[in-house]
């Protein structure tokens, strides 16, 4: 425990941080790795994909908003279990989750993405991009699929996904933080723990740099999502106001 790692954080502490985050991640994932492996080749049939494609735009948007909101609730639970997160002030807890929850959902999505046939788990089975055609935002859907494929190519372990999710969430890049120093200290420890695990697992010395280089894409995807939501809302204000989950509206509207 007395051996010192970067920035004089003891290796024992880094290990405790890593173990806490990995446990929090595993306890709050919607699907276990085993469940995902069992489902991996259960794909929506041609008829089912056609059925999604023929849905009215607002109906599919609503279905996606419900799925995203469900996934976000698990991310909130993940955040709460990270040691140090609940010690941040309430303002910063809300800010970090508001700006980072969708990014974490997208990181977690790579667990439920099959890069061999470019399909993602949606409503119980895997399906390709064409399943989301009726949303009317091909650019966003295609960018999300590209991101998932690119993250999968890094072949991250469950531990690395956990620590990367925490690093994405606990970020000093978010504007209006009240205690940025406190967030920074926590973020640094998470990065050191991530670095330590990646050095252990990967032969590729640039693996961590490659992973970090995906963060701007995450941010761009979230901006694109907000823009698409605004465009959708202009055409279907009633759907958003009445039928979308209140948490989704609170976070993105």
């Amino acid at each position: 425990d007395s051996q010192l790692g970067p920035n004089n954080v003891s290796m024992g502490e880094l290990d405790r941080i890593a173990q806490n985050i990995i446990k929090s991640h595993l306890e709050t994932c919607q699907y276990t790795t085993e469940e995902l492996q069992q489902l991996a080749w259960q794909t929506h049939s041609y008829e089912e994909v056609k059925m999604y494609q023929s849905k009215p735009r607002d109906v599919l948007w609503q279905q996606c908003a419900i799925q995203i909101t469900h996934a976000i609730q698990y991310v909130v639970e993940f955040a709460k279990r990270i040691s140090g997160f609940m010690e941040l002030c309430q303002n910063d807890q809300i800010l970090l989750l508001k700006s980072g929850c969708l990014e974490v959902v997208l990181v977690r999505m790579c667990r439920a993405f099959n890069p061999l046939n470019n399909t993602v788990l949606f409503e119980g089975k895997y399906g390709g991009m064409q399943m989301f055609k009726a949303l009317g935002c091909d650019d966003l859907v295609s960018a999300v699929f590209d991101f998932a494929k690119s993250l999968c190519s890094l072949q991250l372990t469950e531990e690395e996904i956990a620590l990367f999710s925490a690093a994405v969430l606990i970020s000093t890049d978010r504007p209006w933080l009240m205690e940025p120093r406190k967030v920074q200290k926590l973020q640094e420890k998470i990065y050191f723990a991530l670095q330590h695990i990646m050095q252990k697992n990967h032969m590729d010395e640039d693996a961590l740099a490659k992973l970090i280089s995906r963060i701007p894409t995450l941010s761009a995807l979230c901006t694109l999502h907000t823009e698409e939501l605004q465009a959708f809302q202009q055409l279907h204000p009633e759907t958003v106001n009445v039928l979308f989950p209140p948490l989704y509206k609170e976070l993105f509207n």
């Binding site: 909130v76 279990r81 609940m86 309430q90 989750l97 209140p246 948490l247 609170e250 976070l251």
Partner: peptide, 17 residues
């Protein structure tokens, strides 16, 4: 911020299940 994010605030306040 709490006022504008009542649901998120409530989720954060709920005890971890």
């Amino acid at each position: 911020l709490k006022e504008k994010h009542k649901i998120l605030h409530q989720l954060l306040q709920n005890s971890t299940s």
